[in-house]
Design a protein around this nucleic acid. Structure first.
Length: 857
DNA sequence: ATACATACC
DNA sequence: TACTGGTATGTAT
């Protein structure tokens, strides 16, 4: 610390501008030469000046940090160390190595697509984007230091022969669809992170795969002629055909000892390959199929959690995969030498701050945790701690519903007021169009401005109702703009970018008041000991769903589930209703516990032996062998598929042969259960759950009730009726759908000005899922109580409670977190804040709804 | 709730 | 010719 100012000297000074070679294909470049060119191209520009400014801000931040560090006493540090160690022990105890998480990532995706469609590009350095900005570059270009997020004109200086191809998102989206179909065969619940990347949980697939016949693991090589007619894009690459296939061939054959397509091997018709039953083989198979189907290669990482899987996918980047064994040792070894910057979530700035503290690799991270816990915010250091232990999410969940929508545009300097307003209007029009497409309404409108000096400003306005039309949005945006123009005084705003964003979504059929009351009912009593541990848990658990109403969107059941609780708890915390646990919640918790117990004692949900068979168990066998289509339960990806078009056929067909009055919708598989008998229905759900529940981890929560609540939460989704046909695209699932389904159908049909309030809400019992006649909440509540009573009685009969197993995949991180925290809670009785080692200054403050959120993706 | 910063693709 | 656009979330007030 004697050189606390080290941060501002020498090397780190232009870290924002310098080449970022933290990327596959960029090892061993001549950084100095490249940086020199970058600097020369940038120096003196407004952009550069602004970067400089920001860099200095970061440096100041670091200096402050160093000052703080200097004041830490040994005693404090020791104390922090003890607390860290305790936490480590707890985290360690909750380590879950039972999942096989895969991160798949297409290689130089956009560039690869363009190259596929224009073979001349192969062997030439190329990038996708424009002179102003590149999205990707191929590997040839990377050798010159050309990479994504670099402006094209600089790239051209680094590599004068660089070919820049404009982006064509429609194309990438199409390819993305193709690969996602394949992903879904291995994990219908896979989580897409972008067009070219996703996390998958292979655990279940692997279990089933063990019993698959070879035929199901055999895949043909693409042939330009017939075969499965899987792809027809072959046309575009007659000459390449011979080029690519052999490579493939070699690659595949070399690593697989099986009788290589003995048929007409290599010839036009019959080449095939048999894949084994290990994860590596399964992943290799998936990559193989991707390549066969799209002519593009993917890389993959296999590890026990997402954090590591992500790093692993980069390891053998172009067209390779890497598996890290699921042992603590392997994980720890792997982590030790890992530069912190490789970890998703640690970017330029965090890296620089950590470096300033002498932390460059994850091993340092571990060594410095005590210090870090005193210098970083609670969320931040918790994350770092987990990273240092090689921990990450072990549950893959489908993306959550969107929380905001925006559009922004960069342009040549714009200073004339009229033009600024008309541009603003234009943006609002675009945004309104998008909002309409998804049937959204939001209460907060934010205007974003960037002046010619790259200084960014945002101004927000929150209305008391949700808006979505051009006029509404523009009304707000133009006010914001006007204020800014006025504030700037006589000088005009010299803009280079303008953007409009909407957030704080509200269900498009604005049901706010009612929702509140129902939520009140549901959480009546939760929020036990005011705040402290529970509250934290809840919040973490729910992640910022707390503040607003439920946006419509396509949600998975799990999401809806979370959603539901999210709103429930979130509201509860806000409105601070009575502090006792609602019967509802107890009931759910109990029930779930029993189910989990059941699930785990029933032989692995494997043989879908069950009567009530709903897909999840039965689909297994037919799997991958048959082309993409699937087998996969109604619970498949398709109905969960996010916004992208693609009609979820399966979901709608299976989930909606509805005879609403005669059948109930299973919240797990979404299948219709042809009964009105709750016992039968419950049985079905149990079955589904046991089929669906993933491998239980050793969830050794020793303790009392705190976690029971949590457990219960997760499953509240059971209560979720989803017998709606608008389940996909932009339904208004979530709590509204659940508890107060409304309008009969016109909901979000794009176009209607939806005055949904008119018909008044209809209440649906979350337990029996039947529409209730009365819209009187008291009456409704009574009904629900009754229903619950029945359910619980049913559950209690013949079961006794037992150890808790973890809920099946729902909110990955939240669960992990919950575990940690609840174990903590059990230790120190302190349910209050004051989890170990709070950085004195920062954390004592009230944690806002999102302060708690972690940054994990 | 608002503004701004960091991060990721 | 001169450094994106979209979304989420963390930090600070």
């Amino acid at each position: 610390m004697e050189k606390g100012v080290a941060s501002s000297k020498g090397e780190g000074f232009l870290s924002r501008m310098a080449l970022n070679d933290n990327k596959a294909g960029m090892e061993g470049l001549d950084r100095d030469r490249i940086n020199k060119i970058i600097m020369e191209s940038s120096k003196g520009s407004r952009f550069y000046e602004n970067e400089l400014k920001r860099e200095q801000q970061v440096n100041q931040r670091i200096e402050k940090m160093m000052l703080q560090k200097a004041q830490i006493t040994e005693q404090q540090l020791n104390k922090a160390q003890a607390q860290v160690e305790q936490m480590v022990a707890e985290l360690e105890r909750s380590r879950d190595l039972s999942h096989l998480i895969v991160h798949v990532d297409m290689d130089a995706f956009y560039a690869a697509v363009e190259t596929r469609d224009c073979p001349e590009l192969k062997d030439k350095p190329m990038a996708v984007g424009s002179m102003s900005m590149l999205s990707t570059s191929n590997y040839h270009a990377r050798k010159f230091g050309v990479r994504a997020a670099m402006p094209g004109f600089i790239a051209k200086k680094l590599c004068p022969n660089l070919i820049i191809v404009p982006t064509n998102f429609a194309k990438y989206r199409a390819v993305s669809e193709e690969i996602r179909e394949i992903f879904a065969d291995y994990d219908p619940q896979f989580q897409p992170m972008s067009l070219d990347e996703a996390y998958l949980d292979f655990t279940e697939h692997l279990e089933r795969r063990q019993s698959w016949p070879e035929s199901s693991r055999t895949h043909c090589f693409r042939t330009s002629s017939t075969t499965k007619g899987e792809d027809q894009m072959d046309v575009s690459l007659e000459p390449e055909q011979s080029d690519l296939s052999p490579v493939l061939f070699e690659d595949s054959l070399s690593s697989s000892p099986c009788s290589p397509g003995s048929e007409a091997d290599g010839a036009s018709g019959g080449a095939f390959e048999v894949f084994g039953t290990s994860v590596e083989e399964a992943v290799r198979e998936m990559r193989f199929r991707i390549e066969q189907k799209t002519t593009l290669t993917a890389s993959a990482g296999i590890a026990p959690n997402t954090m590591i899987a992500k790093v692993c996918s980069d390891k053998n980047k172009p067209n390779g995969q890497y598996r890290l064994p699921s042992t603590r040792e392997a994980v720890m070894d792997f982590i030790q030498s890992l530069p912190v910057r490789k970890v998703s979530g640690i970017g330029k700035v965090s890296e620089k701050m950590l470096n300033a503290l002498g932390v460059g690799s994850c091993s340092h991270l571990g060594q410095q945790m005590a210090l870090l816990s005193m210098l970083f915010s609670e969320t931040a250091w918790h994350h770092l701690l987990e990273v240092s232990l090689g921990l990450g999410s072990t549950h893959i969940q489908r993306q959550e519903e969107r929380k905001s929508m925006s559009t922004e545009r960069t342009f040549k300097e714009l200073s004339r007021v009229e033009e600024q307003f008309s541009l603003c209007k234009e943006l609002c029009e675009d945004l309104a169009g998008d909002m309409k497409k998804e049937g959204l309404k939001g209460k907060t409108v934010t205007l974003k401005l960037k002046n010619v000096n790259f200084e960014v400003k945002s101004r927000a306005l929150t209305l008391s109702y949700g808006v979505s039309t051009v006029d509404e949005i523009f009304a707000a945006a133009k006010d914001l703009l006007k204020t800014e123009i006025d504030n700037e005084g006589p000088q005009p705003l010299r803009l280079r970018l303008m953007g409009v964003r909407i957030s704080a979504f509200v269900s498009s059929d604005d049901k706010k008041p009612l929702q509140r009351s129902i939520i009140g009912f549901l959480q009546q009593g939760k929020a036990d000991s005011s705040q402290g541990m529970h509250q934290k848990l809840e919040k973490e658990h729910l992640i910022s769903h707390s503040s607003q109403t439920v946006p419509p969107d396509s949600l998975s059941s799990a999401q809806k589930c979370q959603r539901q609780e999210g709103v429930t708890w979130g509201r509860g915390l806000e409105t601070g209703e009575e502090p006792k646990q609602s019967f509802f919640q107890r009931a759910q918790a109990k029930r779930l516990r029993l189910q989990e117990e059941n699930a785990s004692t029933q032989e692995e949900g494997h043989g879908g032996n069950a009567s009530v068979t709903t897909s999840i168990g039965t689909d297994a066998e037919e799997g991958v062998g048959s082309s993409t289509k699937a087998h996969n339960s109604p619970c498949t990806a398709s109905d969960l598929q996010e916004k992208d078009p693609v009609p979820p056929v399966e979901a709608s067909t299976s989930g909606c042969g509805l005879t609403v009055s005669e059948s109930l919708t299973c919240p797990v598989c979404f299948g219709q259960v042809e009964t009105t008998d709750l016992n039968v229905f419950n049985k079905h759900i149990d079955q589904c759950l046991s089929d669906a529940s993933r491998k239980p981890n050793h969830y050794t929560i020793s303790d009392t009730e705190s976690e029971l609540d949590l457990e219960g939460d997760h499953k509240e989704c059971e209560v979720m009726p989803s017998n709606r046909d608008d389940l996909q695209e932009h339904s208004l699932d979530s709590l509204q759908t659940v508890l107060l389904i409304s309008d009969d159908n016109e909901t979000l049909t794009s176009g209607q000005p939806q005055s949904c309030d008119d018909n008044g809400p209809v209440l649906i019992c979350p337990v029996c899922q039947l529409t209730q006649d009365s819209d009187d909440l008291t009456v409704f509540n009574r009904h629900v109580d009754l229903c619950l009573n029945q359910e619980v009685l049913h559950e209690l009969r013949g079961h006794t409670s037992s150890p808790i197993n973890p809920p099946s995949a729902i909110n990955s991180k939240a669960i992990d977190r919950a575990r940690l925290l609840s174990t903590q809670a059990s230790k120190g009785k302190t349910k209050r804040r004051d989890s170990p080692s709070s950085p004195p200054s920062k954390k004592a403050k009230g944690l806002g709804p999102h302060t708690i959120d972690k940054f994990f993706r």
